[in-house]
């Protein structure tokens, strides 16, 4: 299927992508995740042929596509701003790709009808796209991208322009439609919730490189480095130093890990303390990694309380199932088997 190899791309004279390689298999939904400006969209544009890489190759079924013009690739791309043609109606927008692929009018019409039906917008056929709401535009854009039956579908932050409620609603719909299409999909986003909900596999892009690749579970449970943990908001990150095979020295004291770290003795790392894994109060007393903290703030989050707890002069977040007083002292502990010290990069 799709394979990109060692893609390098500069932007304004500075390297943006520094050797990106990955594959997308048949029917697989891959999420390319990274902060804004990390070059995610550029990666899509290179695959689509809208931009040329400085070096590296794009293969489709082992055929070198790097120099192939965009319109001959047969890949679909949905833009973040949808880029619906404002001078054409909904139906004409959807028909565009089919028409230019050389289908006759008689062939195009039923296909457009079917596409409109699939997004439940039959009665919108002759409306100008400028009169559609954000959510409707999003659906039309997806239908337009899928209409010519592309080999590969790429979506650039398809929910990025919508407000929160609509996003959650459309995310379900999108998930269903993308899986039904059985096409290989590359989905670009900076939102981990979206990525976790949709992806078969995640690709995390940081500083021009893929820092981790794997299923959502693997990425969540075993973040490759401190940046991944911080980007995904997995929990407290405390600077640490490995002083023996399974003990790290930190500002909040020595902490014991269950698994022996693969890092070199004496190297710096980031201790990940997940708030939801914290034991508090009675449960913490007598544990190995026992800390004493002062509660600074209690924030009600619905299903739990989020505590801001001060240990020494380090502020940690922990979750609690019951309310606590601000100012009270609190025992906190993390079980050694739940802890990891992550490489800095």
């Amino acid at each position: 299927m799709l394979r990109v190899a060692e893609i390098h791309k500069d932007y304004d004279g500075k390297p943006l992508l520094k050797g990106i390689s990955f594959e997308v298999r048949q029917g697989e939904l891959v999420c390319l995740l990274g902060s804004s400006g990390s070059g995610k969209s550029t990666m899509l544009r290179i695959i689509a042929g809208l931009e040329n890489p400085e070096s590296g190759k794009v293969y489709w079924n082992n055929e070198d596509y790097t120099q192939k013009p965009t319109h001959e690739r047969g890949f679909g791309l949905m833009f973040q701003d949808y880029a619906l043609f404002p001078h054409r109606s909904v139906a004409e927008n959807i028909a565009f790709g089919l028409r230019l692929a050389g289908h006759s009018k008689a062939e195009v019409e039923p296909l457009v009808g079917k596409a409109l039906e699939s997004i439940h917008m039959q009665e919108f056929a002759d409306r100008p796209v400028t009169e559609l709401s954000g959510g409707e535009q999003q659906r039309v854009a997806l239908a337009r991208a899928l209409a010519p039956d592309p080999h590969l579908l790429m979506l650039d932050e398809p929910l990025g322009a919508l407000d929160h409620n609509l996003r959650t609603e459309l995310l379900q719909d999108l998930r269903k439609r993308l899986h039904e299409s059985r096409k290989p999909v590359i989905y670009v986003t900076h939102d981990q919730e979206e990525a976790f909900a949709l992806a078969d596999r995640l690709l995390l892009l940081h500083d021009g490189k893929l820092v981790q690749e794997g299923t959502p579970e693997i990425v969540f449970n075993q973040p490759a480095n401190a940046w991944v943990a911080s980007f995904l908001g997995l929990g407290n990150l405390v600077p640490a130093k490995l002083i023996s095979a399974n003990i790290v020295e930190t500002k909040i004291g020595q902490i014991e890990l269950e698994n022996e770290s693969e890092l070199e003795l004496g190297s710096e790392c980031m201790l990940l303390l997940r708030p939801q894994e914290a034991l508090i109060g009675e449960a913490a007393v007598g544990m190995h990694n026992h800390l004493r903290a002062v509660v600074q703030d209690v924030i009600f989050q619905g299903e739990y309380y989020r505590l801001e707890a001060l240990v020494g002069n380090t502020l940690l977040q922990v979750h609690s199932d019951h309310d606590l007083e601000v100012g009270q002292t609190l025992d906190i502990a993390w079980s050694a088997k739940k802890l990891q010290c992550l490489p800095l990069s």
Partner: peptide, 21 residues
């Protein structure tokens, strides 16, 4: 918006068709 022409290119249009259409 350059995305219009690019969207057309992705939808099977040659550069000239994208400009014209």
């Amino acid at each position: 918006n350059p995305h219009y022409e690019e969207a057309a290119r992705v939808l099977n249009a040659t550069p000239w068709q994208a400009f014209k259409e």
